[in-house]
Structures are given as structure tokens and as C-alpha cells.
């Protein structure tokens, strides 16, 4: 287990990655928006604002990159919480993938089960009971009280 994060000084990658991603964002913005009509100052086209914003983002991100590169006092980024990241992402994708085919209740049930796996302390029976109760509560809230127009099960 890595426990010595937080107070550690950031490595070179940790320091500059934010600035680099931001530069790439700005460049992508310029590249995609390059062909948008610019228009004239008194009759601006749809490309004027996107390209201006893209240029400013690029300039700012170069400045951020430069400042971060020289600042050695930055403490390193906290370690990624892979467990949370993977299971919460999977739960949302399960919901997104199932809701149109399987209906609201099955997709809610499975999303709860998958997201519950992020927590280390769970036992299978506990997860199923919890997911059942959460689905019941979801059914009451979303379909009975709020009457959302989403089918409960597949048709």
C-alpha cells in the first residue's frame, strides 16, 4: 500500500501535466474551429469567439505550465482512487447501457450492486439486500411520487 502521498513533493510529471492537458485542449479547440467563419468585427461569424477563447486558453496554459515547472514546492497529487473510479464508472455505464432496454428498476438495481463494490467492507448478501431496498425506494420516489415517464421494466 502506498501511504506516503500528500506531503510528498510532486515529481516533474505531476507538476506539469495540468498545463499540458490544458494546452492540448486549447489546440484542439483551435484545430476543430479553424474553418468556422470568422466574419468581421461589426458582423462576427460563429468562429470569432471560439477562436479567441482558444487562443487565450493556449496563452494561459503556457503560463500555468511555466509557473508549475519552476515551482518545486508543489506537493504531489493524491494517489488515484482506482477502486472508486472503476466501480462508480462501471455503475453509471451499466445504468446508461441498460435503462433503454431493461427498464428503470433492473438498471437501478444493477447500478447499485456495481457501485457498492467500490466499498471494501461489503459482503454479497448485504449488497443484495441493500440494492433491493434502494431499488424499492427509487421506484417509490421516481415512479410513484414523481411519475417520471420511464418504463419500470422492459416491454
Amino acid at each position: 500500500m502506498m501511504q506516503e502521498t500528500g506531503q510528498m513533493r510532486a515529481g516533474l510529471f505531476d507538476r506539469v501535466v495540468g498545463g499540458i492537458v490544458l494546452v492540448l485542449f486549447g489546440i484542439a479547440m483551435l484545430a476543430i474551429g479553424w474553418d468556422y467563419p470568422m466574419g468581421r468585427v461589426n458582423q462576427m461569424g460563429p468562429g470569432f469567439v471560439p477562436l479567441s477563447i482558444g487562443v487565450i486558453i493556449c496563452l494561459l496554459s503556457v503560463a500555468i505550465f511555466w509557473i508549475d515547472l519552476r515551482d518545486e514546492t508543489i506537493s504531489s497529487a493524491p494517489a488515484l482512487d482506482w477502486r472508486g473510479l472503476i466501480f462508480v464508472s462501471a455503475a453509471i455505464l451499466v445504468f446508461a447501457g441498460l435503462v433503454e432496454f431493461a427498464g428503470l428498476l433492473p438498471s437501478m438495481f444493477l447500478a447499485v450492486v456495481v457501485s457498492k463494490l467500490a466499498d471494501r467492507t461489503n459482503r454479497p448478501l448485504g449488497i443484495l439486500v441493500y440494492a433491493g431496498l434502494a431499488t424499492l425506494a427509487g421506484w417509490l420516489l421516481f415512479l410513484v411520487v414523481l411519475e417520471l415517464p420511464i418504463p419500470a421494466f422492459w416491454r
Partner: peptide, 16 residues
């Protein structure tokens, strides 16, 4: 005990 419920509320909220 709370977060899976938050996850489905987010999913259903955004979807609806």
C-alpha cells in the same frame, strides 16, 4: 451507506 443511492439519483436525474 449513502453513495450508491447518490449514484442512482444522479443517473435517473440526468437521464430523465
Amino acid at each position: 451507506k449513502l453513495y450508491p443511492v447518490i449514484v442512482i439519483m444522479i443517473c435517473v436525474g440526468v437521464y430523465s
